[in-house]
Write a protein that binds this DNA or RNA. Structure first.
Lengths: 164, 164
DNA sequence: AGTCATCCCATTGACGCCCATAAGTTCCCA
DNA sequence: TGGGAACTTATGGGCGTCAATGGGATGACT
């Protein structure tokens, strides 16, 4: 336990509440709060723990970070992020404009992305997945090719030598 | 013991449960969880151990991984993957949409693929096997040609020797 | 007073866990 | 060498627990 994984589809009730999947709540540990912001890459909502955001913040303080990138992230991520509290049943209420941004109405798909997770409209997610699948197929990507490629990438990166 | 081998066909009961072949459970060691996702190449379900997925995850954290590839893998593999628990009898319950994707109804064929395995609809698998067999025959592929080819590749690669 | 947000409680439906059965295999012993 | 016992494995069903969901109550702020 420790990574956001799997996809879960939950309902949005009349009050705008959605249950965060139990396993995701487990990843959050005892945390009753999480951070959400509009994804930079897609019409979806990104979510992460407060801890993760803190670490991101530290990374931004790194002097090697290009100024334009720092500025971009500060405005879009930190500026546009919202801190949400889980209710006693583990539900959150997403801001109206976030729902509109992601096109979420009655269902919400929680997609684990290891250290963070995304919240999609289920239909939009299906479409996105289909597109990604086509792209992977076109590039002939499979688990073994990924691992093989990964190893060569790691080898090229020299230093450690990574995953044996 | 250590590689997923052979093919087994098991039944899907009314609750949607399927027994994972005993020998596959042996490969998993004591693990009570495994990862499944829709195959990129065929209408089948790919499955692997959590460990195997962890290796991928670590590799993705490497800064040398191209961003587009990382994103592609995160959505297709991690986003589309589901973590399944084995019940005390060694059975799993596949998600509804996965079953539909693979066309599985009452039977499930488990096909060992060394480090991972696939789950097929038995009929679809038969068709696929027949096609593969024809292809091999047409290209005159046999175990000995593969071995011969591998040796030349290894010779050419000289130095370290890489993937194993 | 009304509206909104938060919390508490109730329901239901799925999932995990337990047991039972049956078929096939291996091993032991006569 | 043949029979039988014991074990493993696949399969089926019943039951309890927990998560997801929905409705209602309570309190705060306007």
């Amino acid at each position: 336990m420790g990574l956001f994984l799997s996809t879960y589809v939950n309902k949005v009730d009349k009050k705008g509440r959605v249950s965060v999947p139990s396993s995701f709540r487990g990843v959050l540990g005892g945390q009753t709060e999480l951070i959400v912001f509009r994804s930079l890459q897609a019409n979806a909502i990104d979510a992460c723990s407060v801890d993760y955001m803190d670490r991101l913040s530290e990374a931004l303080d790194n002097p090697n970070m290009p100024d334009d990138m720092r500025d971009l992230i500060e405005t879009t991520v930190f500026g546009g992020s919202v801190r949400l509290a889980l209710d006693p049943e583990g539900r959150i209420v997403l801001p109206e404009n976030f729902l509109a941004f992601a096109g979420i109405t009655e269902g919400a798909a929680f997609v684990g992305r290891r250290h963070t997770f995304q919240i999609w409209d289920p239909d939009a997610l299906s479409a996105h997945e289909a597109a990604s699948r086509d792209r992977s197929r076109a590039q002939n990507i499979s688990l073994s090719t990924i691992l093989a490629r990964t190893n060569s990438v790691l080898a090229a990166g020299s230093n450690g030598g990574g995953t044996q």
